[in-house]
């Protein structure tokens, strides 16, 4: 029972991260903090991908140093996560630069005041 809970622990972490991230996005008014919330959700998604790729007793598919009868794990999700991290870096960088320009032009980083386009 305990060991199963331990195995499920990363999934709980993922859920907690998603909730924290979404909470930050919806409740915080500072644009940078909203983007931090988004980053948290992104990390949660990446962590989730890694979690589902875990196989008990499996080893990484590196052929230089393996045990006798290795159970190698196909590193699909790890590859996906790498891709997703790269995309995440790009989006975060772009949105932070947007935040910078908005702060320069509007003089505020309060999301409730970034509403020149409405109606």
């Amino acid at each position: 029972m305990i060991s199963r809970l331990l195995l499920a622990f990363p999934v709980f972490t993922v859920v907690a991260l998603v909730i924290l991230g979404l909470g930050a996005m919806l409740l915080k008014r500072n644009l940078i903090k909203v983007l931090m919330g988004l980053s948290l959700v992104e990390s949660a998604a990446n962590l989730f991908l890694i979690v589902i790729g875990y196989r008990q007793g499996g080893v990484a598919p590196i052929f230089t140093n393996v045990p006798e009868h290795p159970v190698m794990v196909l590193p699909t999700v790890q590859a996906l996560t790498l891709t997703s991290i790269v995309i995440g870096v790009a989006t975060t960088a772009m949105m932070l630069s947007f935040a910078m320009i908005i702060y320069k032009k509007y003089g505020t980083a309060d999301v409730h005041k970034i509403k020149k386009l409405k109606g």
């Binding site: 996005m25 919806l26 909203v34 509403k115 020149k116 386009l117």
Partner: peptide, 17 residues
Amino acid sequence: VVPLHSGIPTDYVAWML
């Protein structure tokens, strides 16, 4: 209906969620 288009980015996210 018009006030719903508040223009606040996080409101948009809230609607989707």
